[in-house]
């Protein structure tokens, strides 16, 4: 594998977004790019990430390879890169190590690091194609604020989507709270719009601890999309220019 990324910051943000949810995981390298799928330890959430091969220049791969990486170790090495550095990932066919090279734009500094890889026997889950009953896109910063605010009052949030809007509500020992967003279109700054596509009303309850954790991906995209259907996991998606980070969260049950 040899994959060169113009901005090391992209990988830094991706790893920052998922490192508190999963510790050890395989980066699966194939023709479509570098992908990752992992569940958290408690098997409540699943993260799915893809950095498409088009996002790298060049992207060269002789045969598919799974790079078993400890994300804490990778974070330590990525801290040694500037966001604007050019990052090149290199690995042999049956690798023991992953090589990371950081070069500044002026091309007068080259940093070379290696991290040890591990064998990770990870089960891959098939995610069924789902026609979601509701898809809500909104500013990622706003979603982050709502999750953090409500998490002060409660450990779970009810998300209700209807044609009137989307309502996030919670109640806890000290009281209760809710935030309702109505659809609106910001013509000048579309990333600040809230869009609600609805085929039928949805009401589900989720753990806020996980949602707050997902919001660490907010640096990746100014827009987040929430996709919901009754009785299936919530999909929280951060799209990047050439890839995505998706989080799936199992709903609370037995209300």
């Amino acid at each position: 594998l040899e994959a060169r990324l113009e901005q090391a910051g992209v990988l830094k943000k991706v790893v920052d977004a998922i490192k508190d949810l999963v510790q050890d995981c395989n980066f699966d390298c194939n023709d479509s790019g570098i992908a990752l799928q992992a569940m958290d330890n408690s098997h409540v959430a699943l993260v799915s990430m893809l950095l498409k091969s088009e996002g790298f220049s060049p992207y060269r791969l002789d045969r598919n390879v799974a790079l078993g990486v400890n994300l804490t170790s990778l974070t330590k090495v990525l801290r040694c890169a500037q966001n604007e550095d050019i990052l090149t990932l290199k690995a042999e066919d049956a690798p023991d190590t992953l090589s990371l090279v950081f070069e500044n734009a002026e091309n007068d500094r080259i940093s070379e690091y290696e991290i040890k890889l591990m064998d990770i026997d990870q089960e891959h889950l098939g995610i069924p194609e789902t026609e979601y009953a509701a898809a809500i896109s909104m500013p990622s910063a706003e979603f982050q604020r709502i999750c953090r605010d409500l998490n002060q009052l409660s450990e779970s949030v009810a998300i209700e989507a209807s044609k009137e809007g989307v309502k996030f509500s919670c109640s806890g020992d000290i009281g209760s709270g809710s935030v309702t967003l109505r659809q609106h279109n910001n013509v000048d700054r579309p990333e600040l719009s809230t869009k609600i596509e609805l085929t039928e009303p949805v009401a589900l309850t989720f753990s806020l601890k996980y949602l707050v954790n997902f919001c660490k991906a907010s640096a990746l995209s100014s827009v987040v999309t929430l996709s919901l259907s009754n009785e299936v996991p919530l999909l929280v998606e951060y799209a990047m220019g050439s890839g995505f980070v998706r989080f799936y969260l199992a709903p609370k049950i037995g209300e």
Partner: peptide
Amino acid sequence: VTGQGSINSYFFKK
């Protein structure tokens, strides 16, 4: 709210 579902019960093993 009484319980937390697990993600494996929604997605199938490959």
